[in-house]
Design a binder for these strands. Sequence first.
DNA 1: CCACGAACTGGAAGCGCTTCCATTCTGGAT
DNA 2: ATCCAGAATGGAAGCGCTTCCAGTTCGTGG
Lengths: 332, 332
Amino acid sequence: MATIYEVSALAGVSLSSVSRVLNDHEHVSEKTKKKVAAAMKELGYRPNTIARSLASSRSNSVGVLVSELHGPFFGSMLSAIELELRNAGKHAIITAGHSDEENEIKGLEFLIDRNCDALILLVDAISDDYLIKLSKGKTPFVILNRNISEIRDNCFYLDNELGGYLAAKHLIEQGHKEIAYISGPLSKQDSTERLIGHKKALVEANICFKENLLYEGDYLTESGREGINFLINNKTTFTAIACSNDEMASGAMKGARDHKLLIPEQCSFIGFDNAFFTEYLYPQLTTIHFPVADMAIMSTHWILKHVYKQKELVIKNMFLPNLIERQSIQQY
Amino acid sequence: MATIYEVSALAGVSLSSVSRVLNDHEHVSEKTKKKVAAAMKELGYRPNTIARSLASSRSNSVGVLVSELHGPFFGSMLSAIELELRNAGKHAIITAGHSDEENEIKGLEFLIDRNCDALILLVDAISDDYLIKLSKGKTPFVILNRNISEIRDNCFYLDNELGGYLAAKHLIEQGHKEIAYISGPLSKQDSTERLIGHKKALVEANICFKENLLYEGDYLTESGREGINFLINNKTTFTAIACSNDEMASGAMKGARDHKLLIPEQCSFIGFDNAFFTEYLYPQLTTIHFPVADMAIMSTHWILKHVYKQKELVIKNMFLPNLIERQSIQQY
DNA sequence: CCACGAACTGGAAGCGCTTCCATTCTGGAT
DNA sequence: ATCCAGAATGGAAGCGCTTCCAGTTCGTGG
């Protein structure tokens, strides 16, 4: 691989000049620009990212740390971020934290140690305090799916409570009164907020929330199935199940069918997230749309604005869910 | 951030010694090891990855280039790779090529320029020749989902032809004779191989393959729908549709329903890949299982073995598909 | 025609580490 | 006590680039 040194020799200029044209500095004459460009081309020169990064402590890349690399939610998020950065001439370095504190911290350090100019974090095991402390550090970052008031401006999140509320309200409007709820892990902020919204809608309609209609899952399909089994085995009665994400809803629907329940006649379902596959379930799943991609793009814009100094980017931190009506709900 | 220099000063040893304990070299006394470790701890020292990488041209990380970051296929692949590397104490640097030659090459150079010790490539726009030339270069790599005979040992792939064959054969065994086929882009090796297998099964059963029962899609759900619309609008008759991936199958199923067709009574479906959501479709989709994760893990093993010199890893390059019977096929 | 500030260029230090080489230190054999 | 191979250590160069500073060139106004 050719180095800047060989380029400078071939072009007959100094190292500094080559570096200057490489970095598009001002105060370089057209003549040397041309000479250098020609030399670079002739040698097939490609700058050594690592060396640049070491010398300048910049890297033109932003680190992305997500819980998992699979699943529709993370998938669309990663895609959106990568594309937005790519369009801005920046790179994404992606890694996973697996919702485990040690791994998340390792991931974080990996990215920081790689001189990322900024970070996009979707972490749930790392504590608020740790993140607040991190915000005093050198590497700027944004947080997705989480709202920490001390660093509010760096947080991008959905109004989860509203989402939970909308889902329950819709079921109630369709005449449902006995509504079960399959939740994500209640240790996670989004899960609890969605449940709060759910309860709020019940209260407004004078429906009492029954603890035995609540099942705490883990956001994975299988736990949706476990949830409905739990509900049925406990001999509870319900006409509808609200799920705090689409995976669990699809698992629960499958479980319902195993129990010979007709959907939606005997049991209605509403999901959350509006993952791509909800449209392909049968019946198509009514759900709450989470504008994941929008949120991901917005967080990227924050970085483009604050770190890479792009102008004219308007930032908003909270996103609003909305109801997507399909065919998984029976009307009474 | 503390540097190796400060550590050496505090420990009262030389830079070289610190470096040696950092890299676990032989010929370091227990005493200095202890002193250095203590100093590192006291200073909260974290080695600067970039500097190490520049000085040693190694990075303990492998670059992963995939077509897209979303979708069940890539999702499970990335997850499997990342986990396997993590367990080996290595890192993954992930980026996307978007099935576009220019982007793929940029992605490739990005990873190489970051001093990745090796690469895992899932690319479809880059030519065989380019890859063969690349294999003469300094950075070792493996290729997924593609079989290039000149660099056969670096390729990991499914026996796609067998997969296509198994799918068609199963349909035929269930009594189907008029079988439509919704294919992926025929510019891609996997698509064409699957189609070849499909045709082979037809030939074996003395069924003539009809060109007007073939639709070339793009592996995305929407094109499955377009496929069935095309077939129906052309007034072709068929009792089953074989699809070359699950997304298109689910799209086609939805399209079938829009046309008021009963599944599987009036139209049977078989997919390919066995993506997680096929189990949650209704009726559950019969499909061909592609052991993506196994393949991803195996490719990672190749790297662990050849680049990081781990012993006792057995490598195989070709993976076999198998039939997953569910409920989307009518028996005659 | 000279002076002077701005534009341009080159030299050299240094980013934090690895690694080669030379030097010093061991301890076991004599 | 002496010798010597091998272990342990330190010094210094260098990975490829950026960036500061100083020096040179240029164009313009007086």
